[in-house]
Nucleic acid binder design. Sequence first.
DNA 1: TTGTAAGCGTTATCAG
DNA 2: CTGATAACGCTTACAA
Lengths: 296, 296
Amino acid sequence: MARLGYVPNHAAKSLRSGFTRTIGLVIPDIANPYFAELAKGVEDAAAEHGYSVVFSSTNFDPVREDRYLDVMRAGAIDGLVYAAGAPPSSRRLGDLAKSFPMAVADEELAGVSATTITSDNVQGGRLVGLHLAGLGHQRVLYLGGPIDLRTTHQRLEGLRAGLGSNGQIETAYGDYREQSGYDLVRARLAVDRSFTAVFAGNDMMALGAMRALTEDGLSLPGDVSVVGYDDIPLAAFVNPSLTTIRQPVYEIGHTAAEQLVTALLQHRPLAQGRVILDVRLVERLSTGIARRRVSM
Amino acid sequence: MARLGYVPNHAAKSLRSGFTRTIGLVIPDIANPYFAELAKGVEDAAAEHGYSVVFSSTNFDPVREDRYLDVMRAGAIDGLVYAAGAPPSSRRLGDLAKSFPMAVADEELAGVSATTITSDNVQGGRLVGLHLAGLGHQRVLYLGGPIDLRTTHQRLEGLRAGLGSNGQIETAYGDYREQSGYDLVRARLAVDRSFTAVFAGNDMMALGAMRALTEDGLSLPGDVSVVGYDDIPLAAFVNPSLTTIRQPVYEIGHTAAEQLVTALLQHRPLAQGRVILDVRLVERLSTGIARRRVSM
DNA sequence: TTGTAAGCGTTATCAG
DNA sequence: CTGATAACGCTTACAA
């Protein structure tokens, strides 16, 4: 009978069943290609199971985050993929995770014990360390991301391990934007020119670092090698092309949503596990043999 | 009082009121930076009015588009921002637009009389034509996007007008991907080397064109000038940096959602208007004075 | 002013 | 096994 185009009303169905077949996705910024790719993974996984995705770019705006908590409490979504980092403000989210199905992607939220899907940040750092050590680098400038993110420390930890006991690491922390990579390198060059390699917390900061180094008259990778993180599309196009760590960001999003949705469909609580996906080094032209160290 | 954290149930509210305070967004691919920026505009405008956004990347997949029609008919969303171009398959969408609040962004859907928000594609083409004519170019290779999109023809029309009566235009049509720009230029070079400039339908095709030209031993912009369209972030970073038309894509998304949501809030049908936003030429290093024409 | 009842469209349950 | 009924949580209208 109902093949004259009958479609059950969504609101009534939700009211009756308690489920909306919709999940939320919270990210810092959809226009950031890294998170756009993650969103794509989330949406694909959701669609495979008949779920829709409502997304929210928070920009770390507490107002916008709060609005989302209301959406959750109103039962407008059945679960949440949270990939917006860990602003100290949203500690409230931690409590909520206990009672609301939630998968955390891309970052480990301090104090939140939900299923977490990340890539192997320690391994990423280690691959960079091994690569640089293999090229003879011993003095490395590490341009970390936000200092309150765990990934920032994990990548440093890996770098230390990969570089070995002869390595000497200077650290500085930025905010993942191109300008901050530029600023940090300029500031560093003013006091210390002994490093032969820069490892940046993401590709945008690496680009900023390259800009600062080039402006200073240094050649890449002749004088200084640069390594990024993420492998955004830009990385292959800049000059010199950027050696970087490729994160399986689509997979991160896909896995997070997959875990969430299958748990939802089975009326089963989310396992409080950790999924750690592999990363790999993409070797391009921004890294090369270390120059002999010049005396300061 | 209800200030111990009471939040009205969303499904019940929707069932009763008939409105969900949610709009849909249909785009071809969220991982495409152009559409990600558009999505950001949509979400910002929606959030300003308390609306949520569920998005769907269709990839022009008819199955996924059909699923969306059901979501609409189920009343899960109050309206739709459609920015997924005009695949011939979805003519059905045209009928639906008559009965469902829908704003069309970025493209004019043939036969769909909804509010349409685009940038001024004729003007974009004209700016390119004037720019190239001013540099002495007369023979231009136009690498259009999909031939069934109106924008493809509008930009050509503008180019013709801007170039003036001395201009000679060869045309070829691709699919907006880097590879198609590459392929079209290679094919063209095999039969005709008289053009001194290439105008590509988007930046990705322009990059492909640059690759093909460079591989052929031509210098940019010494031998051939290249102009793109969109001004994606990559455009500023490639070598030589790409002269291109900047579309206000965030504005397109924002305006589309704004129109949709305000109409919804006022229980008023969407005006069947056209909003055409201005574009501008971003002059970079991929265009220069036309070389003296070499004989074939 | 405050309170009660009906109905939105489903689905699950229970009686026939 | 088929068919009527109640309940999901809210809002609006009407009665007290």
